[in-house]
Design a protein around this nucleic acid. Structure first.
Length: 426
RNA sequence: GGAGGGCUGGCAGAACGGCGAUUGCACCGGUCUUGAAAACCGGCGUCCUUACGGACUUGGGGGUUCGAAUCCCUCGCCCUCCGCCA
């Protein structure tokens, strides 16, 4: 959520910035809602003042034994009270309409973000590693998984439906090994605190991160409750500190969390239907930071590096891409995507998305800190990034490290997590 | 699922339905000091207003009342006990 005062004072900039990302804001409506809200607030508060003074006076008159005067004033205040109640309802509606309007406006991009309409305008920042030159026809992960009997998509479809996976044997072990490896790396080497949050969260939490009210169709809701399955650990973890005032000394707070992620994938019918690239349920290790606003962009860079380190240790070729205005998520001010090399597609595919949300989520979720110098409490900046998406990491490993004989070499760093297994083969 | 107790400011903890929440601790600033501590003074939630001011805020929402932290209803959460259960 943007600061309404900021919008008022920087109308042209806001208009331009939002246009860059393909979002239009109806300023006529904004002004109308804002003006309406302020007018009604003024009226109500004037009446409330009268009532407060009047009521106090009633008490005084009674104590002085002036019963009749008290009675008279009481009658008058009763009428005032009725008016307040009526206007109060209008006020509530006006404020809600204003807030709802603000909740549907996306974040403003950082000045370093390139302007563009689609992923074609994203900017490659750097590349790491060399895609392997296979001297045989490489298979895709579906074939590899089937041939090694570690991935059974047909039976998963029987259990649930399309876009679900059943890992078996060393496939299941590989998934678990990756989760543990990533958690150990980020806690031991990068200073994150491990958390294991609920896999469902309530409406307030989803509003806090910006997933609601606008993107409900992307979520699975639990019938008969106020709970949704989390589409990313970002939701529960960012909301750990919702409605809190943190100490400046505590910042930055860094969490790493493993959760499964559940996404309805509405609107992606027919896209990535083969394999486990796009699933209704997948595992992810997520990095989340709560930062001092002054240093959030440094924290963004280091968070991205922390995620990239996973790929480097695994030996998977990747590139870093700076998303353009048109390709960024609703809540983000700046996003780097990490893309892993996928031999079967002869291209890079997103495996991590690292964003700085500045105070956009913090304002929605009311996450603030108390500056050391005693000045007014301020909103923190929130950041997060996948560290990494586990299913897609499995794709990377199976496809990049496949051998001519159909086996897959286990990256050295994972061997201890695989119980000493160095090669997955029949 | 049943019975009971609770929810107040960053924390602790008061407040017969009536001058719009007493106090302590923590934190920040100032005075004092060579420096620090102590002491003293001030500050330390949100909104409206150029300002002066004003309104709101005792878990959320609603009700009773001239007036609600206080009474009633409802939802949420925490604690204790019973039942069931991985």
């Amino acid at each position: 959520m943007l600061d309404s005062k900021y919008i008022e004072e920087n109308m042209d900039k806001v208009r331009g910035k939002l246009a860059e990302r393909g979002a239009e804001i109806d300023f006529e409506e904004f002004w109308a809602l804002d003006r309406g809200r302020k007018e009604i607030i003024k009226k109500v508060e004037k009446l409330e003042r009268e009532r407060n003074i009047g009521s106090k006076k009633v008490g005084e008159l009674r104590r002085e034994g002036k019963k009749e005067e008290a009675q008279e004033l009481q009658e008058e205040m009763k009428r005032t009270s009725v008016q307040i109640k009526e206007l109060g309802e209008l006020r509530a509606r006006a404020e809600e309409a204003f807030r709802n309007f603000l909740l549907t406006i996306p974040n403003i991009s950082h000045d370093s973000v390139p302007v563009g309409g689609s992923d074609a305008d994203n900017v490659e920042i750097r590349k790491w590693g060399e895609p392997k030159d296979f001297d045989f026809e490489p298979k895709d992960h579906v074939e590899i998984g089937k041939d090694l009997d570690i991935l059974d998509l047909d039976r998963a479809a029987k259990i649930t439906g399309a876009r679900f996976a059943l890992y078996k044997g060393l496939g299941a072990r590989l998934e678990r090994a990756l989760i543990n490896f990533m958690l150990d790396l980020h806690t031991n080497e990068h200073g994150y605190t491990e958390v294991l949050p609920p896999f469902m969260a309530n409406t307030d939490s989803f509003i806090g991160t910006g997933n609601l009210p606008k993107f409900e169709e992307d979520l699975f809701k639990i019938e008969g409750t106020d709970f949704y399955l989390v589409p990313t650990a970002e939701v529960p973890v960012t909301n750990i500190h919702r409605d809190e005032i943190l100490k400046e000394d505590e910042l930055p707070i860094k969490y790493v969390a493993y959760t499964p992620c559940f996404r309805s994938e509405a609107g992606s019918y027919g896209k990535d239907v083969r394999g486990i690239i796009r699933q209704h349920q997948f595992n992810k290790v997520e990095l989340v930071k709560f930062s001092n606003p002054d240093s959030s962009y440094e924290e963004h860079e280091s968070l991205t590096e922390n995620a990239a380190r996973v790929l480097e240790l695994l030996g998977l070729p990747y590139r870093v891409v700076l998303l353009c205005t048109g390709d960024m998520g609703f809540s983000s001010a700046k996003t780097y995507d990490l893309e892993v090399w996928v031999p079967s597609e002869n291209t890079f595919r997103e495996i991590s998305s690292c964003s700085n949300f500045e105070d956009f989520q913090a304002r929605r979720a009311s996450i603030r800190y108390r500056p050391k110098d005693g000045s007014k409490v301020k909103l923190v900046h929130t950041l997060n990034g996948s560290g990494l998406a586990v299913g897609r990491t499995v794709i990377g490993i199976l496809e990049n490290f496949q051998e001519a004989d159909g086996s897959v070499t286990v990256p050295e760093v994972l061997v201890p997590y695989m119980g000493g297994v160095t090669k997955i083969s029949n």
